[in-house]
Design a binder for these strands. Structure first.
Length: 869
RNA sequence: GCCCGGGUGGUGGAACGGUAGACACAGCGGACUUAAAAUCCGCGGGCGGGAAACCGCCGUGCCGGUUCGAGUCCGGCCCCGGGCACCA
């Protein structure tokens, strides 16, 4: 953007002007994938020690944001006080933490606090009506699927999920052993998703949870009778004197009377106890331990289990219940133990059938017949089910049954209904070469030694060329060789680097203080939190998650004073493109790049098929995500090369709203290019007019034509303002079209036209500046506006002139019984009574009322009048 | 299974409960040109009537409701897309 494709750097502590907001714009990379942008920027930062671009874009609800932040602070303070001043380590995140549920509403989830031993979380401070007023103008670089098509992106996401999963499994198996590997220790984020269950009452934070999930679930203690487990590891955490309660987790407490077994995870302490006593159990646990942990495998794995020979006591019936180890029970979820209710849980059912365990029906649905040889979906129906064979709970529906059972358990001192949270952690993956260096030095004598703080940061060499044969850093003696900070003897640096998510978790903070001598300084507290976050789905999940955690760590380290890095979220849509294919001899499908195909339009105006250059017909596959396999990716570089960055930006912003998917269209790109040419030609044609025009206010001595054109311009400006605020850039662009159309239709020779053109063009350029910065910036300068109002970057945002909108006579829509029947023109000054009279007197009313008496007349000022007969 | 998002002309999409289809793209007709490209002007939801201006009816996935008035609000469905998931 702007000169030489680069924006000025942020200027110290300068405050945004009233009604302005700061936001980030990729300078040299107008429409590249955000991931690329981030990386490139980081690169920049390293290379020249300065931050790349910030840009101001005008128009934002600064007051609104202020309110939001203040509200967030207040809430936090209140909670702190409510916690009784206890110094809990609070890392607050909100539900967004979970990568699972859709992306859109992550930042507006509320009243949900997630927690773990590490994290205390809260809803991010977003106002109730955030969705309605969620938008702030800013750069909307949409993700284009070129360099990293969606499939690849998807795979990357899955890979990370797998890594995290794998780590979770490993950690669960062996919590004491965290080898020196490539992840953060101690600070490893464990984030949570809320899930109803009856929580373990932890002494230090009991009572902090302030909300229960409706119909929430239970943790039900089953006490051990026949076994007195001891920790195989020798930990003294559990005292064997009293029979310990082993807790199971359920959201179906209403089926508690149907428990016929208890299943624990292979990593569960009870399993460990049983493994000591039985080689059979030992073998099973070992096998489960070495089985695949790939999610896809786990999900389709055969449900297997083994008897432990241990029994626990049912908390309500006192019955002895057999304990099994099941490979389908996850140690990381709940307490690693579930109550087996085979009649009403599909997995338990399959398990019970396989091992011949008793299946006891305790829920019935009218008109359905239970059959313990065949699973039926209604067995799990919470909505219709009523308790049966459940003693005093018979006849109760789901919610009352859960409440009654929870109450009975509570009365026995066995627990109560609570909300707990599922944790999700961040396992970062190893990178070779281009990632955040791990500041460790390996010394033969001293082992692994941290790089002393005075020597930080470790800077990577920038001229490595990966040749595919491993980590290029490992071949760089200049990087590797270092003296051991501890003993001074020759040692070697760590060559693995961390995931680039580590960088992207805080690089934007550095932009606020690029020359700081510390990690960040006070300027960062001034600029942050970022007013608006825009990202694709992957960023909305992973980057957002990590960045938020990272921020809280920085806050606790005293590096920043804010809790949340981002105030608002916009998840931008994907880019789709047409796909074309043909069938080959072997019955397979070959895809063809859209650039090779000429579409054939059928009689109905729809695409019927396509032809290759050699005349071969190909089939149309519709629009789909850009992907490598379908060969329908588009490289923004090609577009930029052919048409320029402004055209690419214009198309991407105009073709659809930012959060919707975008259908790629070469014709649309060309249309964007045509518009820019038209804008350029029009403005260049007005150089003399604009520069030579008398400096009188627009509208002075304006004739009808000039007045009308000016009105159009100001109407469009009003629309653009509204649309910028709600981040609907496609209609902002549309407002630009309207302005140009209005101005273009106004003859220079019309009375009073010149000041209107001069003003109109200046408004148009400022409105379109964020969309097509290069073009507008150059025209602004050429037309001489810069001499008067300064550089386009610094020019004040145009204001709507209400006088320009005023009309002498206005046209109202005339309805009879809510149906459009005509129009009437009344003076702008006409009052309700006058309008009503005019309507009653109109021919249309006479015609359509058919002589019926008028019951009522509704007048909507400036819009319509509706006559009800 | 759970969670999000979405169904409006040939197409992308507009429309603070108030003229449905703004603004574009593609298309068609015309001007300019030897011709083409570029550019400019015009037309465009469906059905029926009319030579035409125009008139009538229908129309925002489906069914119902609220309202003077519903694409918009409410209730119940259908379909599509995406994400997550041995989540107990």
């Amino acid at each position: 953007m702007g000169r030489a494709g680069r924006l000025p750097r942020p200027r110290g502590r300068r405050a945004p002007r009233e009604g302005q907001v700061l936001l980030r714009v990729d300078a040299a990379l107008p429409v590249r994938a955000a991931a690329h942008g981030a990386r490139a920027q980081l690169h920049d930062q390293r290379r020249d020690g300065a931050a790349p671009a910030h840009a101001r874009v005008q128009r934002a609800d600064a007051d609104g944001l202020g309110r939001v932040r203040a509200a967030g602070r207040e809430r936090r303070d209140e909670e702190r006080q409510a916690a009784g001043g206890v110094d809990v380590r609070e890392h607050r995140l909100h539900e967004e933490a979970d990568a699972g549920d859709g992306a859109r509403d992550r930042l507006v989830a509320r009243d949900r606090r997630l927690r773990s031993r590490v994290l205390q979380v809260e809803p991010v401070a977003v106002p109730e009506d955030a969705r309605a007023r969620r938008r702030v103008p800013q750069d909307a670089g949409r993700e284009l699927g070129s360099g990293r098509p969606d499939r690849a992106r998807e795979r990357a996401g899955h890979r990370r999920a797998r890594l995290a999963h794998r780590r979770r499994r490993r950690e669960a198996r062996d919590p004491g052993l965290l080898p020196e590997d490539h992840r953060l220790r101690g600070g490893a984020a464990r984030l949570a998703r809320p899930h109803g269950r009856l929580a373990r009452a932890r002494e230090d934070d009991a009572g902090q949870l302030d909300r229960e999930e409706p119909g929430g679930a239970l943790r039900v203690p089953f006490s051990t009778k026949s076994a007195t487990p001891q920790r195989a590891s020798g930990s003294s955490r559990r005292r064997p004197q009293e029979a310990p309660a082993w807790v199971v987790f359920t959201t179906r407490a209403d089926t508690i009377m149907g428990v016929t077994f208890v299943a624990v995870a292979p990593e569960h302490p009870l399993a460990a106890v049983a493994a000591v006593r039985s080689t059979h159990v030992h073998e099973f646990v070992e096998k489960a331990r070495h089985g695949s942990v790939m999610e896809a495998d786990v999900a389709t794995m055969e449900k297997e289990g083994v008897r432990t020979g241990l029994y626990v006591t049912h908390p309500l019936t006192g019955a002895q219940v057999e304990v099994w180890v099941g490979n389908y029970v996850l140690m990381a979820y709940g307490d690693g133990a579930v109550m087996g209710v085979p009649a009403h849980d599909e997995r338990d059912f399959a398990f019970a059938r396989k091992y011949g365990l008793h299946i006891q029906q305790v829920v019935a649905v009218d008109g359905e017949t239970f059959d313990d040889t065949r699973w039926q979906p209604w067995y799990e129906d919470k909505a219709r089910g009523r308790c049966v064979h459940s003693g005093r709970y018979d006849g109760l529906a789901y919610a009352p049954a859960v409440d009654a059972i929870a109450a009975d358990l509570a009365a026995k001192g066995l627990g109560e209904k609570q909300v707990t949270w599922r944790l999700r952690d961040w396992g970062i993956s190893r990178q070779r070469y281009w990632g955040t260096p791990i500041p460790m030095i390996h010394c033969d004598a001293c082992g692994s030694v941290p790089v002393p703080e005075r020597d930080l940061p470790v800077v990577l060499p920038e001229d490595c060329i990966p040749d595919g044969s491993g980590n290029p850093l490992a071949k760089r003696e200049d990087f590797l060789a270092v003296d051991c900070p501890s003993c001074g003897r020759p040692a070697r640096r760590e060559t693995d680097t961390m995931d680039t998510f580590v960088d992207s978790s805080w690089y934007y903070m550095r932009y606020a203080c690029p020359d700081a001598t510390t990690m960040v300084d006070a300027r960062n507290d001034y600029w942050m939190p970022m007013d608006q976050y825009i990202g694709g789905i992957e960023h909305a999940i992973l980057h957002l998650l990590y960045a938020r955690f990272w921020t809280k760590v920085m806050r606790d380290m005293g590096l920043v004073k804010f809790d949340e890095p981002f105030t608002r979220l916009l998840t931008q849509g994907m880019v789709l493109n047409h796909s074309w294919f043909s069938r080959n001899d072997r019955g397979g499908i070959d895809y063809h790049p859209p650039t090779d195909v000429t579409p054939v339009v059928g009689d109905d105006g729809r695409i019927a098929g396509g032809k290759l250059a050699d005349g071969t017909s190909v089939e149309y596959g519709g629009v789909s995500k850009m992907s490598k396999s379908e060969k329908n990716g588009v490289d923004p570089e090609d577009i930029i090369e052919r048409f320029g960055a402004d055209t690419a930006r214009h198309f991407v912003m105009f073709a659809s709203p930012p959060e919707a998917t975008l259908e790629w269209s070469d014709a649309g790109v060309e249309g964007s290019y045509r518009f820019l040419k038209r804008l350029w030609a029009y403005a260049q044609g007005k150089l003399v007019v604009v520069r030579g025009c008398e400096r009188v206010p627009a509208g002075t001595d304006a004739g009808e034509a000039a007045k009308a054109a000016r009105r159009e311009v100001h109407l469009a400006l009003r629309q653009a303002n509204y649309d910028y605020e709600r981040v609907q850039y496609n209609t902002v662009v549309s407002a630009g079209y309207k302005m140009l159309n209005a101005l273009d239709g106004l003859s220079v020779d019309a009375p009073g036209a010149e000041p209107v053109i001069r003003e109109g063009l200046s408004i148009l350029l400022r409105v379109l500046y964020p969309v097509v910065p290069h073009t507008t910036w150059a025209l602004w300068r050429d037309l001489g506006y810069a001499d008067e109002m300064g550089d386009l970057l610094d020019a004040p945002w145009p204001e709507v002139d209400e006088r320009a909108l005023a009309q002498d006579a206005i046209e109202l829509v005339l309805q009879v019984n809510g149906k459009l029947r005509g129009r009437i023109v009344v003076p702008a000054t006409a009052d309700r009574a006058a309008i009503e009279a005019a309507a009653r007197a109109s021919d249309e009313v006479a015609k359509h009322a058919g002589g019926a008496p008028v019951k009522k007349v509704i007048v909507v000022p400036g819009r319509l009048v509706n006559v009800v007969v």
